[in-house]
Write a protein that binds this DNA or RNA. Sequence first.
RNA 1: GCUCCGGUAGUGUAGCCCGGCCAAUCAUGCCGGCCUUUCGAGCCGGCGACUCGGGUUCGAAUCCCGACCGGAGCACCA
Length: 486
Amino acid sequence: MKRERRRELPELPGAEGGVVMRFAPNPSGPLHLGHARAAVLNDAYVKRYSGTLILRLEDTDPARVYPPAYEMIQEDLHWLGVHIHRVVVQSSRLEIYYRHARELIERGHAYVCECTGEEFQRLKLAEQECEHRGKSVEENLADFERMFTEFKEGEAVVRLKTGVELSDPAMRDFPIMRISEAKHPRVSARVYPLMNFAVAIDDHLLGITHVLRGKDHIVNTRKQAFVYRFFGWPMPEFIHYGRLKIEGVALSTSRIKEGIEAGKYSGWDDAALGTLRALARRGFRSEAVRRAMLEVGIKQSDISFSWKNLFAYNRELVEPIANRYFFVASPVEVVIEHMPEFSREVRLHPSYPERGSRRLVVKPEAGVGRIFIAEGDYAKLRQGEFVRLMEGFNVVIQEKRRHWMRARFHSLELEEAKRRRARLIHWVPAPHAVPVTVVKPEGRDTGYGEPALGEVEPGDMVQFERYGFARIDEAGERIIAYYAHP
RNA sequence: GCUCCGGUAGUGUAGCCCGGCCAAUCAUGCCGGCCUUUCGAGCCGGCGACUCGGGUUCGAAUCCCGACCGGAGCACCA
């Protein structure tokens, strides 16, 4: 038995008084591996300290909202085992942001700026104030109201008076409110807070004690600090973890969406994607994903995500439940001469005889049996070679031709094959072979599976011997399996 | 370019704040053995790292400086 040795994450500073944390994705699509880190880590800390986890949907950019995502994100979190105590949607809180923006204007900390982006950038880089900065509070208040009625998108923003001489140009009078005329799926509005404003206000109002997020937000944290300062609010504890480089799968939500529309991907759970639903479809267990994320931790240095580690964690979970079957990819026919009748019961799982067995049968016609082997094995075999057909019998290759082989039955005993150090390969009896397609991130393998595959059901996890673990996606006359890992 | 971070085995991680018990932890990977009708699993054994150079100190993975390497941000996105 394997016990779960879970390394503890480092303590959160100042967690004694309880923790309130949040997971704050943009509802632009379902969750992927990158989100899983933030979700799992926040969840793990909240559970450790018996705190509260808030899901905050940050939909203040109407152009980037994908309406189904509101639901999908919650489904994904449920799958991940992340427990959400409260859900907050920013588009329902616009009045709160407006009120705080007015307050900042009244206190002289913000102003309505009509510069174009380029104009302001030029002035900013020259450490010069723009003409709108010196307006009176009354003028600013009036101009703010004009943002709701008169100004068009891009014509005015509210800027925070942080100072134009700040050493980091990014900090200089950054904007906190803007106009967007894109249609929002949930509300009808045209003035929206920018992320750094909405986040700071919400984090404070929701009583967030610890913010755990990627280091791409470090600059945002500094910007948000200005908002806290102007309101006189205490800052939560901020922790930034490093970038997680994930290779081999598509992660960018916007690019995935384009790919789906262009027919490049079958959907959000296409095997080539790094979305959680794609991993689930391939048979990954959420516990394996959680463990991988916990293992990765909260260090600030950048790391490469290791698929091998995830595979190993998942294999540990899935190996005991996955029944064994033979599947030959790109089948090559082998005719076996002098073949006797053959029939054998083979365990579905070598460690669990009680789970039952499947039957491998070769019924020769006129002394000739027919089977399939995988093209990869065919390529390696040489004429005259003695080879063991796993769970079956031994044959000697007589003749190797283009995509076809002739062999002769030799013997039944495994000992004979061991003594000769023969190659052991898997195979499928040709009659009643079941067509199987295995969908992999890189493409798909087609071939045949053994007749017993007729009994599997969608959702079953199987191990195709010498091939890898896969999840049955469609069962029946023909099988479609999604490949997980070796 | 500017601002700011970070660098422990193939990968991830512990240790670094509070120098010695660190010839450096754990997982994964790889190699070998046992077991096993393959793969996998299990058990046993092994491989493998403190980026480099100075400094402080009796003593540095741990503190300081520099170099090198890597990364983030510099949006009217989040």
